[in-house]
Nucleic acid binder design. Sequence first.
DNA 1: CTGAAAGCGCTAACAC
DNA 2: GTGTTAGCGCTTTCAG
Lengths: 334, 334
Amino acid sequence: MKSTIRDVAKMAGVSISTVSRVMNSPNSVIESKRERVLEAVEQLKYQPNAFARGLIYKKSFTLGLLIPDIENLYYAGVIRGVQDACIKLGYSLMICNTDRDKDRLLSYIDTFHEKQVDGVVLASDILYPEYYDKLVGCRIPFVLVSSHSDEYDIPSVEIDDEAAAYDAVKFLIELGHKEIGMIGFNHDNSIAGPPRYEGFIRALTEFGLERNIEKIKYANHRYEHAYQATHELFTDFPDLTAVFCVADEFAMGTISYLKDRNILVPGQVSVVGFDNLRMASMFIPKLTTIAQPIYELGYRGAEKLHELITTGSVELRREKMEHKLIVRESSREK
Amino acid sequence: MKSTIRDVAKMAGVSISTVSRVMNSPNSVIESKRERVLEAVEQLKYQPNAFARGLIYKKSFTLGLLIPDIENLYYAGVIRGVQDACIKLGYSLMICNTDRDKDRLLSYIDTFHEKQVDGVVLASDILYPEYYDKLVGCRIPFVLVSSHSDEYDIPSVEIDDEAAAYDAVKFLIELGHKEIGMIGFNHDNSIAGPPRYEGFIRALTEFGLERNIEKIKYANHRYEHAYQATHELFTDFPDLTAVFCVADEFAMGTISYLKDRNILVPGQVSVVGFDNLRMASMFIPKLTTIAQPIYELGYRGAEKLHELITTGSVELRREKMEHKLIVRESSREK
DNA sequence: CTGAAAGCGCTAACAC
DNA sequence: GTGTTAGCGCTTTCAG
C-alpha cells in the first residue's frame, strides 16, 4: 500500500492534522515536530493523495488539451507550449488526440468532466454547438487556440489568418508571379480555411489578378490529399508559376507532386507554405512559409485558460499573435 | 456547482445507494426507479466524481506516458497506439514530454504518484537507476516501449534493433556498395544506439567489409546534428557511396547535407533510414528505411502495462515485434 | 501550537 | 430491492 497521512503521523508521533499542516503551511508547526514529520515523509515517500485533496478543494489542478491530429507536427509545438505553461502554473495536463472525430472529442469531454479537469484548451478546431453545449453543460471553462468563435463569446488566441495569407500571396505577386494557384483547407471542417481564402482573394484583387480567383483546389489536412489536389490544380491550370499552400504539409505534397512531374521548384514553380513547422527547414527545398508562433500560441492559450479559471474572465477576449514571412528556397522571382 | 449523487437521489426520489447502483450494476435496481434515476442523471448531467471513486477503488483508471521529445514524429505514432489501447481498456492517459531532461522526468513521476496513476509506460529512454528507484519507491508498475533493461527485470516491447540494422546494412551491401558509413546515436544517452551499431558491425564483418567499421559519426537525435555529423563523415571519408542512418530524421539531415554539397542521392550516394516515419514517404527523395511497427509498439506496450496492473505480472517479459525493410527512392545499386 | 472531529462524494457491506 | 451507514485520505474548523 501507498503510505497515507496516518502512517506519517504515526511514525512522527503527531496527529494527522500536524502532518497536514507541515504539508500546507509548514510555518505553523513548531520546528522540532516539523522535522520529525518531514523525516517520516521522506522515509515513507509520502505524497498526499490527489483524490482526497480533489474531493476537498474541488479542483484537480489538471487541464485538458484537445487536439485534432497528433501526427501533425503543428500540434507538437502547441502541446509543448501548453505543457510548459502548465508546469509553470502548477497544473498537470491531459492531452487527448481526437483524430478529427467528433464523437471521440465528445467522449473526451466526458472523461474530462469525470476527472474534474479545471479547464480545457481546444486547439485548432471549429467550436461546434455540440462541443459548446457539452462543455458549458459540464461547467468546464475553456479557451480556443488557433481558432476562434463568432457564434459564442469564448476566449481565443490565434494569428490573423487573413492577413498572413495576404502576406504570402502578396510576396508571390511582388516576386513577379501572375499565374498563382492555391491549395486550401476545405471550408466546412477547418477553422483557418475561410480566412486564408479571403487573404488570397484580397491580395489577388488588390493587384488586379482576379483571374486567378478560381484557381483553387482543396485538401483535407494531410499531405496525400494535397498531392492529389495539386494534380487537379495543374491539370486544370498548367500555366501556374506559383502556388500558395495554406499549410506546410500541403506545400510538401505540392512539391512532391511537382517533383514527380519533373517540374522544378523553385525553378519553374514557386511554392509558399504556412506554419513553419520544424520540417519546413528540413525539407528539400527548404520551404518559404508563413511562420506562426506555434509554441507561444499554446503557451498563451494555457495562460489564458488559467486566467479564466482563477479570475472567472479574461482581459483580452480574442487575442492575435504575430505571424512572419520566412523566405527560404521554395520560392523565386519570376 | 457540479451535481452530486445526492442531487440525483433527491430528484429521483430515491436513496443515494440506489443511484450508485444504477451507475454500477443497473440490473440490481427495479426498472421504474432505474428510469427515474437515469432521467435525473441526464437532466443534471451527472458524472460520478472520479476523486470520490478513486478514493474507494484506489485506482485512477489513468495511465502515464513518458516520452522524450514530442516534436519527433516517432512518438506521435507511439502516442496514438498507447492512446487507442487506453480507450479500449477504459483508461485515461496522461502524456508527458520530458524533452530528454532527467529532472523533468523525475518530477513527472512525482506528479504521477500524486495523481495515483495506475501505471506508466516509459518510451524510448534508458531506464536509469534513478527512474527505476523512484518508480519502484512509489510502487508504480511500469513497462518499457522501444526500450528494455538488462539491469532490471522490467516488461518491454521493442523491435530487434541489432537485426534491423543488420538488415539495412546488408541491403546496402547487396546493392553492391563497398564504402559504407553510418550516422549513429550516441551510445551514452540512447537505448537503440549500441544494438544498431552492433548490427552495422556484424553485417560489415560477415561480408568482409571490416575496413568500414570506423566510418561512423554520432549525432544527437535531431536533424541538425545529423547534418553536421554527415559533414564530418564525408570530410573524413569522401569516397563513401552509402550511409546507414539509424533514424529517418538523421537520413533527412544526411540527404540535406549531401544536397547542399551537390552530391546526388541516390545517384552518387545511397541512404537508408530507420523508423519509417510518416515523413519518410513525404521527403524528396522518398526514404528507403527500416519500418518499425510504431503504432503497434505503443498499443502493445499499453496492453502489457494493463496486464501487469491487473494480474501482477506479464506473460512475455521482453517482447520483440517485427521490423521490415521498405525500399523507396533514396537507395540504388552501385 | 496541536489534536479531535466533521465532511468532501462515493461505494459496499449490512440491515430490513 | 432498497435505505442506512461506515469509511476511503485529506483539510479545516473548533477547542484547548
